[in-house]
Protein backbone atom coordinates (compact mmCIF):
# COMPACT_ATOMS: atom_id res chain seq x y z
CA UNK A 1 0.00 0.00 0.00
CA UNK A 2 2.58 2.50 -1.09
CA UNK A 3 0.11 5.08 -2.39
CA UNK A 4 -1.52 5.29 1.01
CA UNK A 5 1.84 5.88 2.61
CA UNK A 6 2.63 8.53 0.00
CA UNK A 7 -0.63 10.30 0.78
CA UNK A 8 0.18 10.22 4.47
CA UNK A 9 3.57 11.76 3.75
CA UNK A 10 1.85 14.63 1.96
CA UNK A 11 0.20 15.55 5.24
CA UNK A 12 3.52 16.28 6.94
CA UNK A 13 3.82 20.07 7.27
CA UNK A 14 7.57 20.07 6.77
CA UNK A 15 7.24 18.63 3.28
CA UNK A 16 4.65 21.06 2.05
CA UNK A 17 6.88 24.06 1.23
CA UNK A 18 9.24 21.70 -0.57
CA UNK A 19 6.45 20.18 -2.58
CA UNK A 20 5.01 23.59 -3.36
CA UNK A 21 8.34 24.88 -4.57
CA UNK A 22 8.90 21.87 -6.84
CA UNK A 23 5.51 22.34 -8.45
CA UNK A 24 6.01 26.08 -8.79
CA UNK A 25 9.51 25.61 -10.23
CA UNK A 26 8.17 23.31 -12.91
CA UNK A 27 5.46 25.84 -13.76
CA UNK A 28 8.08 28.57 -14.07
CA UNK A 29 9.89 26.38 -16.61
CA UNK A 30 6.69 26.28 -18.67
CA UNK A 31 7.21 30.02 -19.07
CA UNK A 32 10.07 29.38 -21.48
CA UNK A 33 7.74 27.63 -23.90
CA UNK A 34 5.15 30.40 -23.90
CA UNK A 35 5.63 33.23 -26.39
CA UNK A 36 5.96 36.43 -24.41
CA UNK A 37 6.52 40.07 -25.12
CA UNK A 38 5.90 43.47 -23.61
CA UNK A 39 2.80 45.23 -24.88
CA UNK A 40 4.08 48.74 -25.54
CA UNK A 41 0.71 50.38 -24.86
CA UNK A 42 1.12 50.69 -21.14
CA UNK A 43 -0.33 53.11 -18.64
CA UNK A 44 2.19 55.44 -16.97
CA UNK A 45 4.94 55.03 -19.60
CA UNK A 46 8.34 56.55 -18.90
CA UNK A 47 11.04 57.93 -21.20
CA UNK A 48 13.90 55.71 -22.35
CA UNK A 49 16.48 55.03 -19.64
CA UNK A 50 19.16 57.71 -19.25
CA UNK A 51 17.40 59.95 -21.76
CA UNK A 52 16.66 62.73 -19.30
CA UNK A 53 19.98 62.60 -17.49
CA UNK A 54 21.79 62.83 -20.81
CA UNK A 55 19.85 66.01 -21.54
CA UNK A 56 21.27 67.49 -18.33
CA UNK A 57 17.83 67.77 -16.83
CA UNK A 58 18.17 68.47 -13.09
CA UNK A 59 14.97 66.55 -12.40
CA UNK A 60 16.09 63.40 -14.22
CA UNK A 61 14.90 60.66 -14.37
CA UNK A 62 11.48 61.67 -13.08
CA UNK A 63 10.70 64.91 -14.91
CA UNK A 64 7.13 64.64 -16.21
CA UNK A 65 6.56 68.30 -17.04
CA UNK A 66 4.22 70.71 -15.30
CA UNK A 67 5.11 73.57 -13.01
CA UNK A 68 4.51 73.72 -9.26
CA UNK A 69 0.94 74.64 -8.22
CA UNK A 70 -0.04 76.02 -11.62
CA UNK A 71 0.23 73.51 -14.39
CA UNK A 72 -0.30 69.72 -14.21
CA UNK A 73 2.36 67.34 -15.46
CA UNK A 74 1.79 64.56 -17.93
CA UNK A 75 0.33 61.44 -16.33
CA UNK A 76 -1.27 58.69 -18.35
CA UNK A 77 -3.58 57.17 -15.78
CA UNK A 78 -6.11 54.42 -16.34
CA UNK A 79 -9.14 56.49 -15.36
CA UNK A 80 -8.20 60.19 -15.54
CA UNK A 81 -11.85 61.09 -14.89
CA UNK A 82 -11.63 59.65 -11.39
CA UNK A 83 -8.72 61.82 -10.32
CA UNK A 84 -9.58 65.49 -10.56
CA UNK A 85 -6.21 67.00 -9.75
CA UNK A 86 -4.25 64.51 -11.86
CA UNK A 87 -0.75 65.69 -12.70
CA UNK A 88 -0.58 68.39 -10.06
CA UNK A 89 1.42 66.24 -7.67
CA UNK A 90 3.93 65.36 -10.35
CA UNK A 91 4.39 69.02 -11.12
CA UNK A 92 4.78 70.01 -7.48
CA UNK A 93 8.19 70.75 -5.96
CA UNK A 94 8.66 71.68 -2.35
CA UNK A 95 10.72 74.85 -1.67
CA UNK A 96 13.71 72.78 -0.54
CA UNK A 97 13.44 70.71 -3.68
CA UNK A 98 13.49 73.84 -5.82
CA UNK A 99 16.63 74.90 -3.98
CA UNK A 100 18.29 71.57 -4.65
CA UNK A 101 17.22 71.68 -8.28
CA UNK A 102 18.90 75.02 -8.80
CA UNK A 103 22.14 73.91 -7.16
CA UNK A 104 22.98 70.61 -8.77
CA UNK A 105 22.22 68.47 -11.78
CA UNK A 106 22.46 65.06 -10.22
CA UNK A 107 19.88 64.95 -7.41
CA UNK A 108 16.71 64.29 -9.40
CA UNK A 109 15.90 61.14 -7.49
CA UNK A 110 15.99 62.90 -4.13
CA UNK A 111 13.91 65.77 -5.43
CA UNK A 112 11.19 63.52 -6.74
CA UNK A 113 11.26 61.32 -3.71
CA UNK A 114 10.50 64.30 -1.47
CA UNK A 115 6.82 65.34 -1.40
CA UNK A 116 5.53 65.62 -4.94
CA UNK A 117 6.68 63.61 -7.92
CA UNK A 118 5.27 60.91 -10.05
CA UNK A 119 5.75 58.01 -7.67
CA UNK A 120 3.87 59.91 -4.98
CA UNK A 121 1.11 60.60 -7.45
CA UNK A 122 0.72 56.91 -8.17
CA UNK A 123 1.29 55.68 -4.63
CA UNK A 124 -0.95 58.15 -2.84
CA UNK A 125 -3.45 59.31 -5.38
CA UNK A 126 -4.35 57.13 -8.33
CA UNK A 127 -3.42 53.84 -6.67
CA UNK A 128 -3.63 55.00 -3.08
CA UNK A 129 -5.75 52.05 -2.05
CA UNK A 130 -2.83 49.74 -2.85
CA UNK A 131 -0.59 51.72 -0.57
CA UNK A 132 -3.10 51.45 2.25
CA UNK A 133 -2.87 47.72 1.93
CA UNK A 134 0.86 47.65 1.66
CA UNK A 135 1.36 49.72 4.75
CA UNK A 136 -1.19 47.52 6.50
CA UNK A 137 0.74 44.41 5.53
CA UNK A 138 3.86 46.06 6.88
CA UNK A 139 2.11 47.01 10.09
CA UNK A 140 0.66 43.54 10.61
CA UNK A 141 4.00 41.86 10.00
CA UNK A 142 5.61 44.11 12.56
CA UNK A 143 2.81 43.73 15.08
CA UNK A 144 3.27 40.03 14.75
CA UNK A 145 7.05 40.05 14.92
CA UNK A 146 7.24 42.45 17.81
CA UNK A 147 4.56 40.58 19.71
CA UNK A 148 6.35 37.28 19.35
CA UNK A 149 9.66 38.93 20.19
CA UNK A 150 8.33 40.70 23.26
CA UNK A 151 6.44 37.76 24.69
CA UNK A 152 8.51 34.78 23.72
CA UNK A 153 11.94 35.37 22.34
CA UNK A 154 13.15 38.34 24.38
CA UNK A 155 11.88 37.59 27.87
CA UNK A 156 13.13 34.06 27.83
CA UNK A 157 14.64 34.07 31.33
CA UNK A 158 11.35 34.83 32.99
CA UNK A 159 9.65 31.70 31.79
Amino acid sequence: MSIGRLWNQLANPKRIPRLFSVVLGLILLVGFLVPMGLNDHQIYPRPAPQEQIDQKNPLAPYDRGGSPLTEPGIVKAQYPQNAEELGMITGYLSPIAIGVKNTTLYYGTSIYSSPGGLIDEILYYTRGFDTILESTILMMAFVLASWVALNFTMRRKEE
Binding site: P49, Q50, P61, Y62, T109
Partner: peptide, 8 residues
Amino acid sequence: YNHTIALL
Protein backbone atom coordinates in the same frame (compact mmCIF):
# COMPACT_ATOMS: atom_id res chain seq x y z
CA TYR B 1 15.29 50.72 -15.94
CA ASN B 2 15.92 54.00 -14.07
CA HIS B 3 13.83 52.81 -11.14
CA THR B 4 16.05 54.97 -8.96
CA ILE B 5 13.62 55.57 -6.12
CA ALA B 6 13.00 51.83 -5.91
CA LEU B 7 16.76 51.35 -6.02
CA LEU B 8 17.27 53.72 -3.13
